[in-house]
């Protein structure tokens, strides 16, 4: 099992969710996060004083999937999240050692 974590532009979240649904994914977790990357932040000015806001809003999507599905789902997310402009985000995959569905007690791949 693998954990796919994608940090994407917030306004692409619906497209990513719809694409993952179409690909048969049953559940994802989304967190509102902030990030800084190559996409620069911006400046806000209050009463003439400048505040450098380095962090831009991003959405983090997490899903646990079978090893076999990783390649496909990473490309599904990539396609849905891509705008071609800087700041589209990053996807990484880590290994999951154990998994359990709380309601049923199912473990391992059954719990995906």
């Amino acid at each position: 099992m693998k954990l796919i974590t994608a940090v994407v532009k917030p306004f692409r979240l619906d497209e990513v969710k719809d694409a993952l649904k179409s690909a048969g994914v049953a559940g994802i977790t989304v967190t509102e996060v902030q990030g800084f990357g190559r996409q620069a932040g911006h400046t806000e000015v209050y009463r003439g004083t400048e505040y450098q806001v380095d962090f831009v809003p991003k959405a983090r999507i997490e899903l646990v999937v079978d090893d076999d599905d990783v390649a496909n789902l990473v490309s599904v997310i990539t396609e849905a999240a891509k705008t071609g402009k800087i700041g589209d985000g990053k996807i990484w995959v880590t290994s999951v050692d154990s998994l359990l569905r709380i309601r049923t007690g199912e473990q391992g791949p059954d719990a995906v």
Partner: peptide, 19 residues
């Protein structure tokens, strides 16, 4: 610190260390 199996930059599709 955890180990990452795979990384993709969404805009370019670059993978691994390049991403």
């Amino acid at each position: 610190v955890t180990t990452v199996d795979r990384v993709v930059r969404v805009r370019t599709g670059e993978q691994g260390a390049e991403a």
